[in-house]
Amino acid sequence: MRCSKVEKRLAEQELGILSPGKKEALDAHLAKCAACRQVAEEFKRSVMALSEGTDIDPPQDLVQRILRHAAREPEPSAPRYWWWIAPALVGAVIIMLVLYMPAFFGPRIHMTEQEVLAGYAENLEVLGFGNTEVYSEDNASDYEEFGIPPEVAKLLI
């Protein structure tokens, strides 16, 4: 075993993850290398210092400070599944806007009965039929020839 591997093996030994074979090699190396024995001693002290509890206590008013802040906090955050519900709702609103945008900004779809009749009446005037009010039931087929649906034609009669 090389000296450069010693610290790694010492760390693994400290963590309890050094295999028996490697431990044997480490012990054999330490037995014959004074410099690495010194490193092993220092390593042990480093780990002991790290393990030693700190002498500093939390501030005495810490609990009160936390409770004061917590009392001002809003309600707890929603359960985990909420993280995707909010974006899904936003997505749904965007899709609705895209689909129904023409309804808001395009030509009006909903017309009153009077408006429908007036629209056809204008066309009929252009075609020489004059005022729709003068037409009788017999003219129904004439309307249909000009593409006016029977349902609308009934209203014109």
């Binding site: 610290e7 010492l10 760390a11 400290e14 963590l15 480093s46 790290l50």
Partner: peptide, 10 residues
């Protein structure tokens, strides 16, 4: 952890 211990020791 192995690397961390080595780095801390140094």
């Amino acid at each position: 952890m192995s690397r961390g211990l080595k780095a801390f020791h140094r």
